[in-house]
Design a protein around this nucleic acid. Sequence first.
DNA 1: TCTTGACCTAGAGTAGACTCCAGGTATTAA
DNA 2: TTAATACCTGGAGTCTACTCTAGGTCAAGA
Lengths: 130, 130
Amino acid sequence: MAGLSIGETAQRTGLSADTLRYYEKIGLLPRVARDPGGRRRYDERDLSRLRFIQRAQRCNFSLKEIGQLLKLRSAADASRPQVQRLTERKLAEVKAQMADLDHLQRELELLLNLCHGSEEGCPIIEGLES
Amino acid sequence: MAGLSIGETAQRTGLSADTLRYYEKIGLLPRVARDPGGRRRYDERDLSRLRFIQRAQRCNFSLKEIGQLLKLRSAADASRPQVQRLTERKLAEVKAQMADLDHLQRELELLLNLCHGSEEGCPIIEGLES
DNA sequence: TCTTGACCTAGAGTAGACTCCAGGTATTAA
DNA sequence: TTAATACCTGGAGTCTACTCTAGGTCAAGA
């Protein structure tokens, strides 16, 4: 039988079967193909979409935003100016978020370095206090 | 009257009065002192705790984790290894998120470039799906 | 004195993203 | 043939971090 069952897809992506059904229910995945018995069959397109969703989600995009991103991704030539504006906005957001995270990373690293170098007191706690 | 009212504290911290009451309700702040009329009075200790909470929250710690950090704060010396572990985990999370964002950024930039470069339609974009 | 505005409590409601449940069907192994 | 297993649907429940509501109190100004 072509494609993967929901169980296999769950295992492969690390998402639960419930989550996969949920994504379909809210339209994040277009209706997944069914076998003659009515069970879902996930193809490579679906898996690619799921990987995209997971990456975007790890970047703090909401499912709603991911829906928009997915539209950009698959219908890019349908309404190009609009698509382009959205893409640019998302890109700007991604860059801003990168800058924030970069800042955060430095801060956490600084705290940890202080911690390794200090004799007494907890510099992480102290750092968060001041 | 000693200390700040909830309104003044809200203004000073940028948190809403509701949020301040909420933090107290869930035990993130110990019971705040009351004046004879039963209104809250925030002292320097409370404000320090609130600053701590806000900083930690900006570092992507959940309120639950912040609760842990606050407990550890009283015995900072003894609990240093724990604090360090928590911080290290956060740092790892932040780094993973950065990597994902980087990936997403490239993908969006690629999409944008393809859109700029083509006359009508973006035939290569369908290739992104796979 | 009356009114206004800040405050009080307990508890309900919200949004996002799941997660679980009940009751039913299909496929496979014994 | 039967039992186990994986799957189906619609809908209810959960968690986080608030946010809002109702109904009441208190202190200060006109």
